[in-house]
Design a protein around this nucleic acid. Structure first.
Lengths: 224, 224
DNA sequence: TTCCGATCCGGACTATAGTCCGTATATGGA
DNA sequence: TCCATATACGGACTATAGTCCGGATCGGAA
């Protein structure tokens, strides 16, 4: 999620349902809210029409009936728009992770939850590869700057910590040099969209064949 | 290496010293050869002068005293130039891997060679982060398209295969769905420049603190 | 030495992301 | 209702990567 104070997004608003990654923000003015909606809708259409390559900022502004300045007022950049679109598609998975039934949700042992997460995450990425790649493009940091990244990583971190200690997960907080955190980041690197794209679209492998192999690798990292 | 039939580069020329990734190519015309040199030299200067951000194609063409068409005749794109520059800096490491003393070179067990490789590779990436990031930027595929990627991956693949079978390494050739290959690719994902940049420059960690943790993770993946 | 085709060169041109800022509009208080 | 001001809007503008093609140049053959 890269959009600025978007009221349509529950993610990161600190309402308790999601990780409070971002402080609440003043509500948008009514016209801004309308425009934001128009842009997102136009982006969805344009994407359906012409695919990711056809999604240019000029065309998007034209279709949404707004100026480019408005685009950039509502979204930091092009990947930011992709992020906002993805947000919608991901919210459901977030809540299943945080409050759904096990093994994806709480209630199962860390190892099983991790396996369930890897499965769900890979399918999510694979199902939205174009958008995710767009999100991760633009600068090396791409992948890490989107707000969803910290969410995923933190989830993995907590699960690994649980596997290690079998106690309360909050132990692994805060400290970036924590080996648990490093492992979580390594897991996320293996699950990166660029890597998945390589496997799926360049090597022609299938998700079904890939997932078990990746599961094995991820488990090994977690247990390392 | 992304440059077209570059006579200054031994890498990938199929001369037996390096993996024959690319067939030999007709030699460049004398003027083209001169221009290629001028461009590479100018790029080095420009990089020293203004850093990666100052390295624009127009300015590079101006400094090299050639037109932009010449730039793009000699190098596929901007990352390609970065690749060519990196090539020079990496050739030494390649030969140490292939014919230097153990544990980096042949003669040590696969596990030890892998550890030595991870150490050398991370230091290489860290020492050239700007260039490598430039190389990997531009499109998701970035990281995989440069010719050095197959080289590294293959090396890791061979070492892992050796760890597994303790026999001749050529078993793992060719087949992209080979689990050994998947593991090698996972290792490379963890060692990606974007990830290292995240750790080093965004989280402020140090190489010395990071390397042992990564070693552990890589070993776990290899043994998975 | 001269000639000819293959190869290469230069720089104007296109496409696109992202910036800037003068103008317009919304919103809350008097 | 009207005003003041913070906020938002639009679209021209800048910066940059990469394309295109007419003309120049190379280098081997006669």
């Amino acid at each position: 999620m890269d959009d600025i104070n978007g009221p349509q997004s529950d993610y990161g608003r600190g309402n308790g349902k999601f990780l409070p990654l971002v402080p609440a923000q003043a509500p948008l003015r009514a016209d801004a809210q309308r425009n934001r909606r128009k842009i997102l809708d136009a982006a969805t259409d344009l994407l359906a029409d012409k695919g990711v390559d056809g999604l240019t900022m000029d065309e998007l502004a034209r279709r949404a009936g707004v100026g480019k300045g408005t685009l950039y007022r509502n979204f930091t950049d092009k990947p930011g728009i992709a992020s906002a679109l993805l947000d919608d598609r991901v919210r459901d998975m977030h809540s299943r992770m945080l409050q759904g039934p096990p093994p994806l949700g709480p209630g199962a042992p860390g190892g099983e939850r991790l396996t369930a997460f890897v499965d769900a995450y890979l399918r999510h990425i694979a199902g939205n590869l174009d958008l995710v790649l767009l999100t991760e493009s633009s600068s090396p940091k791409g992948r890490f700057d989107r707000q969803s990244y910290p969410f995923w990583r933190r989830h993995v971190e907590i699960l690994i910590a649980e596997m290690w200690t079998a106690t309360a997960p909050e132990a692994s907080d805060a400290n970036p040099s924590d080996p648990v955190r490093t492992r979580a980041e390594a897991v996320m690197a293996v699950l990166s969209a660029a890597q998945l794209d390589q496997w799926l679209n360049r090597q022609g492998r299938t998700l079904e064949e890939l997932i078990p192999q990746i599961q094995t690798i991820v488990s090994a990292i977690a247990a390392a």
